[in-house]
Amino acid sequence: MGDERSEATSQRSEVLQGTLDLLVLRVVALEPLHGWAISKRIEQVSREVLLVQQGSLYPALHRLQRRGWLRASWGTSENNRRAKFYQLTPAGRRQLEHETASWRQLADAVDRVLEHA
């Protein structure tokens, strides 16, 4: 994950970035989705708590695709438009597991500090 860091620091908001990647990977793990649907899905599932900035979403999608974690293909969306669908690759699935594990670890650690400090 060496290049992950340098990639992240080149963006301005490190934490959000990492989180967004994780969320995107998780959302497309179920089925191929296009960009708009990905952002809507994240908003719905998080009960509108998490708002996805489009300015971050599309760069993230292209970054994940470049890393080989997402695969893109053109298909037809629900309203009969040509749309770009993203789906998880095997490498992406491994990455998702890895990132989920580290997120849980982090969240637990933060919880523990909040409760016991």
Binding site: A37, Q54, A83
Partner: peptide, 17 residues
């Protein structure tokens, strides 16, 4: 051009929504 189309698609979806 694919990027343009992708972004345009997003806005179209949002508009309809």
């Amino acid at each position: 051009s694919e990027l343009e189309e992708e972004l345009e698609h997003h806005i179209a979806m949002e508009t309809e929504a």
